[in-house]
Design a protein around this nucleic acid. Structure first.
Lengths: 107, 107
DNA sequence: CTAATATGCAACCTGGAGGTTGCTTAAGAT
DNA sequence: ATCTTAAGCAACCTCCAGGTTGCATATTAG
């Protein structure tokens, strides 16, 4: 658990941006998309979108597969499982703290 | 859902840093801590820790209560619920995409 | 073959994140 | 009354995230 902490912050950071959240929302629908496709419907440049995709790719949320002249990006849910576990861990700690407080007050 | 998207990125971003993750891990244990307490056991300056706490506070993960000459920070799990919901939403989309693919292949 | 499309690469700009130091003020401890 | 500890404020520094433009290259379409 403690060993994994160093690897989770980058995943959170990758999600800490509206544009990237929107990309994730689009790609988790299942259909792989090319960079150009992802750029249409965004106010940003293709290069800007590309950079965001590379950030997501660097933490494994997304994977790129070259297909002819276009590179298609597809979603990978695995890194998200990791941070979900972390959030559950935090919630659990908190709940336990609350129970301890409660039993302390009751006695 | 779509309306909330704009408010989740900052929460993810607040967690996208090792130091802040460590602070969260400490505070979710239930015991409120002063800035000085949180600074001991870190290699950073008190002011650096303060800045990180303000970031967490700005998204509601943490709340500060003045207690005499010290300001004690306590954890608040509520914003984390929001991003958990988002992660569940993404997973659900993904699972549905997989089922669609599966039934498409099977027919 | 040529034109159009999709991407890659690199330079560049700007603002803000993350950190430090120095000084001031408030509150406890002696 | 004085010393010490906790915290706030502000200036400053460095580096990188996020974005742009311009040009080069690979693929596909006509």
């Amino acid at each position: 658990m403690a060993a994994k902490r160093q690897t989770r912050a980058p995943v959170f950071a990758a999600l800490g941006n509206e544009t990237r959240l929107a990309l994730v929302a689009k790609l988790c629908g299942g259909r792989p998309c090319s960079i150009s496709q992802l750029t249409r419907g965004s106010k940003l440049t293709r290069q800007a979108i590309t950079k965001h995709l590379r950030v997501l790719e660097s933490v494994g949320i997304v994977r790129s597969v070259r297909r002819g002249r276009e590179s298609r990006f597809e979603f990978d849910p695995q890194p998200l499982e990791g941070i979900k576990q972390y959030l559950d861990f935090v919630s659990e700690q908190w709940d336990q703290a609350l129970s301890r407080l409660k039993s302390f007050v009751e006695e």
